[in-house]
Design a protein around this nucleic acid. Sequence first.
DNA 1: TATGAATGAGTATTCATTCAT
DNA 2: AATGAATGAATACTCATTCAT
Lengths: 192, 192, 192, 192
Amino acid sequence: MALLQKSIDKRTALLKATLTLVNNGGIQEASMAKVAKTAKVSPATIYLYFQNKQDLINRLYIEVKTDFTNMAFSDYTPNNPVKLSFEQIWFNMMNFKLNNPDEASFLAQCDNTPMIDEPTRQEGLTKIQPLFELMERGVKEDLIKNISPYLLYAYTIYPMTFLINMHKRNLHPLNQQTLKDAFQSAWDSIKI
Amino acid sequence: MALLQKSIDKRTALLKATLTLVNNGGIQEASMAKVAKTAKVSPATIYLYFQNKQDLINRLYIEVKTDFTNMAFSDYTPNNPVKLSFEQIWFNMMNFKLNNPDEASFLAQCDNTPMIDEPTRQEGLTKIQPLFELMERGVKEDLIKNISPYLLYAYTIYPMTFLINMHKRNLHPLNQQTLKDAFQSAWDSIKI
Amino acid sequence: MALLQKSIDKRTALLKATLTLVNNGGIQEASMAKVAKTAKVSPATIYLYFQNKQDLINRLYIEVKTDFTNMAFSDYTPNNPVKLSFEQIWFNMMNFKLNNPDEASFLAQCDNTPMIDEPTRQEGLTKIQPLFELMERGVKEDLIKNISPYLLYAYTIYPMTFLINMHKRNLHPLNQQTLKDAFQSAWDSIKI
Amino acid sequence: MALLQKSIDKRTALLKATLTLVNNGGIQEASMAKVAKTAKVSPATIYLYFQNKQDLINRLYIEVKTDFTNMAFSDYTPNNPVKLSFEQIWFNMMNFKLNNPDEASFLAQCDNTPMIDEPTRQEGLTKIQPLFELMERGVKEDLIKNISPYLLYAYTIYPMTFLINMHKRNLHPLNQQTLKDAFQSAWDSIKI
DNA sequence: TATGAATGAGTATTCATTCAT
DNA sequence: AATGAATGAATACTCATTCAT
């Protein structure tokens, strides 16, 4: 038990260290030596928990993405009206990103980078399936434009990354009003 | 003249080589040795044109961003109606990205990455000033919501990156119809 | 008893694993981790049976050499005529190498390599003492040239290594005829 | 010119360093770091002259083998009688090994080790072609047994390795008499 | 302007070995 | 007797950068 806990702690420390380092200087700054030192562990120990650097990054991606979508769909009730559910999910996502800036920043960095390999990227994609299903329902109920889910995603969820980035860089702070405006734009872009 | 041209060619070749390499494997794959080899030049020669690797990346960013905005505003006429101008700019940007996938991919990679240093990022931002001014005019003319330009950008321009990415990965091809849908969503998200 | 047997099995498995690995890629390929994995044992377990890697290799050498010489002298009868005994031993050795290619290959690799330490090498040398005595007898009986036993060994036994190597690499297969020729050459080189 | 000489010197120093280190502790002791330090050069410099460690070893093998055979056939005259030529070559080889113990020891280590890759081994083999042709002539002239050249080699040349090894370890010194005996055994093993 | 050669510090990964259980 | 976890030091190799020419 104690042993197992220690192992879990080490694994977690390694993931956390990687997250921090990648955020601060990109994947190139997150050398295995630095990850090890940050996690207070020998470089060799990393390889007890991960196959190699790519695996470490992939696993981190999946775990962060999972945390993110778990939060996003935490109170999702398929029977609720589409717009209500959509609003809940949207604000859950935004709140996750606001409350977990490191995780948000990491996910943003993964988006347009060859950091993550394709299979892992696909695996991550499956996590937001419920959102796609909700949108589909909205289309059927004539609430949402009958356009590709990729378009719907591009104009409602994807802009968050930019807004969070501007927020972090103090160029455009997100508060109750701006969040409201942002959501309104998201909804306006897809509603019929 | 011939000598000067040769120099320019070399500089251009170096930038092009960097672009290609960064696109294919991220910044970590674009080692100075590889850049030199790809540009058919000695590694030492790079340092005649750029101070160091960071400078090389920064300059590439500025040049690509400049090409991009030059195209975007190529036919911009301040006296034209807001929506017409906005539409022109929007499609110019999209066409640039579709016609220059390498440049588009590179810019996308720069967005959420510590690759580019902050001053250079700011410099890049100034290039789209005309768009911000156009939006401001739209706000004044009660055509566009009275919200932060960052929000306007987030919901009209930023989604392009995602759409181009999906297009490149063959997950959601962009054609006349989908482009039209995309623009409509962009406009819907900000129009009053 | 069952417990003891299990121990012996493990030790044997470790030696066998080492043999295989060294044969396939030299001593550098036979890492303790790989030896352990091949023997289906924890790395730490190796150190219950052997002091360290050098000891493991040394012990393997001695055991293989012992097997080899046991076979060589299995039917040795000191009273038999010199040439008959010599022939028996020669073919026994050859047959051992042909029937146990892994052991043969390992011994060959040990011959001119600093893999085995000097004391262990000496220990291995004592195992073929009976052959040296037989040769001495042959010298006394005026059947064999009165030259150093090292010379006698060099021209009768040592060439086997080369022939086995060529056989293994399919460059010069050993069959009844070529074996006969080989023995003839061996004998011709030392007979008076 | 001076530059080129410096390059050649470095390459030579690297090969020499490798030779020494491999002789003293096998290929596993000849780490790139040690080779570099021994040659008084940066580790990175090795890779200016050799593709990787395997290439370094391969090249060393070829160069040493070339030196060896150059010496062996230095005074070879195809028109001379077979036995005379054979004797010249045999003593040339032996003298090379006696005068260049490091090279001899290295070649011995290469014989039964996976150190050298197969293509390079084949390349090395071609260097002793003249010896095989000489033996063929001896067979035609009814001076040498009509047996495979591999057998002829095994009983005349290959034993040198063992004798040199014993000589080096002071177990059986080679002097004029023992060399004469050795050659006699070699010849006796193959002559008709 | 342009270069090939050179490098010390760094890269990801593996090593032989130990230790708490 | 046996182990999985752990490690500091080592591995082969690459890096961004400099320098003599």
